[in-house]
Simulated scan of single mutants.
Amino acid sequence: MDTKKPACTLRLVIPAGKANPSPPVGPALGQKGVNIMEFCSSFNMLTNHIETGTLIPTIVSIQKDKSFNIRTRTTMTSVLIKKLSRDDSIQPNTKYIDYTDVKAIAEIKLRDLNTVVLDKAIKTIKGTIKTMGIKVKTGTHYE
């Protein structure tokens, strides 16, 4: 990995395995002089183990010589929550997510959060869930 300070850093959200020269990838990288096809190939290979189409926050560091470094982050928390939330037939028009799923999301997101303590990561995830209007089911009750 290059330790020199990059000339430019871009933040993009790209579907796993689906990077191509169309927007947002092509225009963003093209104006910086990066080889777009090389980037797309590298990104798709880097994300081939992730479910195709999953949105991946990506940081692209571009050097003065137009070389680049790709860093991916974990899938956005809201995407993971939506994927795991369920309709609750007992309470119509209410979505819920099981506590075990909250814990699983926290374990996935731990490397991107500002904590290394799982309990604090769970609290962070629960805060996001609450703002989305989804309830957390723990045993027989909802939070």
Score class of each variant (00 low, 15 high):
V116P: 00
N48D: 14
I36V: 15
T54D: 04
T74G: 01
K82L: 04
K66Y: 02
D2E: 14
V13W: 00
F39K: 11
T74C: 07
G26L: 10
T77Q: 01
K95Q: 14
P15H: 09
M37A: 08
S42H: 14
I56Y: 02
K83A: 11
T3G: 00
A104E: 10
S89H: 10
K103A: 09
T100H: 01
D101T: 00
P57A: 06
I108P: 00
T54F: 07
N93H: 13
D119M: 06
T58N: 03
V34Q: 13
T74N: 11
K126T: 11
P57V: 13
N114R: 06
I62T: 03
N114E: 14
N48R: 15
I122R: 06
M37D: 15
I90E: 12
T3D: 12
V79K: 06
T140M: 06
T52L: 12
V136A: 09
D112L: 02
L80I: 01
M132Q: 06
E51C: 06
I81S: 01
T124Y: 14
A104S: 15
T124V: 12
K109H: 04
I62D: 03
L12Q: 01
I125V: 15
F43L: 08
I70W: 04
I129E: 07
N48V: 07
I122L: 11
N44E: 07
F43T: 08
T140K: 13
G17A: 05
M76S: 04
G33I: 14
M37E: 12
G53M: 08
T124R: 01
T54Q: 08
K95F: 08
P24I: 07
K4C: 05
Y96K: 04
G26I: 05
L12W: 04
I70Y: 11
E38P: 01
K103N: 01
K95N: 14
D65K: 13
E38V: 07
G127Q: 10
T140P: 00
G33A: 14
I56P: 00
V117P: 00
L84H: 05
K123T: 10
T115A: 05
S85P: 00
L113I: 07
S85C: 07
H141R: 12
N93Q: 03
A121I: 06
G17S: 12
T131S: 15
T72V: 15
E143D: 15
Q31D: 06
N44M: 12
D112V: 10
I14E: 02
M132K: 06
I70T: 08
I50S: 03
S22K: 10
R71Q: 12
K66F: 09
G53Q: 09
C40Y: 13
V60R: 03
R11H: 15
D98L: 15
K103V: 15
E143C: 01
L29R: 12
T72Q: 12
V117W: 04
H141D: 07
A121T: 04
I105C: 01
F43D: 09
P23M: 11
N35G: 03
